[in-house]
Write a protein that binds this DNA or RNA. Structure first.
Lengths: 266, 266
DNA sequence: TGGGAAGTTCCATTATGTGAAACTCAGTTT
DNA sequence: AAACTGAGTTTCACATAATGGAACTTCCCA
């Protein structure tokens, strides 16, 4: 009961361990984990055992290392398929990318971060950091700022608290005040920009995706580089982007389950 | 203590709920879940709460439905990145696909099923069921049979027990005896075929990926359709496929972690 | 062949999970 | 408008399952 922030129950702790393994980016030995986690050896050991038995972690007996398990991949495939946004948006963002000839990102807000859930590359892909499944900062990406702009104040305050405001580039908005001003501008304008705030040379126009009721679903962006085009040129695409966002939103709203209850059979 | 098969601890039960949600393929209401799960209402409720708080499930307040959460997508990205096979194999299978001009699959064995972990489409993609993250039957796919052929007898017996032997097509090997004969043939030959055993018109050549020590890592296949080519023609590719499998295997073996322990800082 | 570190098991203690039942609160139905 | 319904939520006495210090077993390296 000391910090309510993360994980009270057993399940939460187990997931914490899972994240810890995932965060390393490579399979880890037990001892490494022990050093990183707040749990005593025996406790951690049991978690790792359980998770391995459950298929959420995989154990490599040759190397004596634990990695994220294959069951996760399967689950995530389901997650992606059933998330109301990504599968529906697919063909729309493909069409958009084809029309504008640039890379398109689809993102959602995950806690205080941007999660890229899908990406369609331009014919000549940019060399950049994003990728489906990757997370990025919210305060200095086009999609991130646009989504923040459509959060209600309570949540926004909490999310802003968690931003690092690390100055990735000279253009990064590195204070809450600057960010808040930007969010107001986005609210007025209805869309936002990334002015090389996260990666030098990378710019984008981003647009929110809202339910008809105004709830935030996610955001999409058209991304390019200063070498290829300019913000002014990208802004030309806003009408098409807006249309795409709308189309996704409408389709997502129609996405009802067949009926209140389903037949029980397979 | 009735069936030790699935989930003893709390974590296991929570994951069971998670799978249940995932299995529906669409967001579900609480009542639906209740009907499907073995847990009493209050217990199930708490699980769903916990999982939602943890970000493993997402709750849509408009529709009052639960879906798999966004945290899973993030985890899966990590899983894919740190699995010893998929990221390493990427460029190899891309090269292979470019060379042979056909679709290439990379698969691993997940319990008794084939999990497709990556896929590179030919220039003209086939209309077929596979996709990264999807699972398929082991006894009637090229990659599946090849992997079975390199399992040791103990495990093989257990895995075979779990095959349905459903006759997807007239060519499906629908008995254990037929399958066992086929596995022997594969062991002698070093690679295997799919002779329209899973989907009519879909054929492939599959090759195992083994560690230098002989442990099974996965399998890859070159897939095409009877309309486009023949098994005999596909068999021509075996040397290149074998080479690719080898290259992947070698690279996977070198894939050591930097050192026994890592610095603690972020 | 001994010292040390990694990995594993034990078990008394206690925190956590459990689930029947009671409650709330819509949206019906009478 | 009062009673009913059923989904969703909360409560609380009880029991199971998690906890972690300490002891034990490898396995490696000197």
């Amino acid at each position: 009961m000391s910090d309510a922030s993360s994980s009270a129950g057993t399940v939460g702790k187990a997931l914490e361990v899972l994240d810890l393994v995932g965060a390393q980016g490579r399979p880890v030995r037990f001892a490494e984990l022990q050093g990183l986690s707040r749990f005593p050896k025996a406790t951690l050991y049991r978690f790792v055992q359980t998770l391995t038995n459950e298929g959420m972690l995989s154990f490599d007996p040759e190397r004596q290392t634990y990695g994220l398990g294959i069951r996760l991949v399967r689950m995530a495939h389901n997650a992606w398929e059933q998330s109301s946004l990504a599968p529906i948006a697919r063909r729309h963002i493909e069409a958009l990318s084809a029309q504008v000839g640039e890379t398109v990102h689809l993102a959602q807000l995950d806690h205080a971060q941007v999660l890229y859930v899908d990406k369609v590359n331009a014919r000549e892909p940019l060399q950049m950091y994003s990728q489906a499944g990757k997370v990025g900062p919210a305060y200095c990406t086009g999609v991130g700022k646009v989504m923040l702009a459509y959060l209600d104040e309570d949540l926004l305050a909490r999310v802003i608290e968690q931003q690092s405001f690390h100055p990735f580039t000279p253009h990064t908005l590195n204070t809450e005040a600057k960010l808040r001003d930007e969010l107001k501008a986005i609210q007025n304008r209805g869309y936002g920009f990334d002015r090389e705030e996260h990666e030098p040379g990378i710019i984008c126009v981003a647009h929110p995706i809202l339910t008809p009721g105004g709830r935030l679903l996610g955001a999409l962006s058209v991304t390019s580089s200063t070498g290829r085009t300019s913000l002014t040129a990208l802004e030309e695409f806003v009408p098409i982007i807006k249309e795409t966002a709308n189309a996704i939103s409408v389709e997502a709203a129609q996405w009802r389950f067949p009926d209140t209850h389903q037949p029980k059979g397979s």
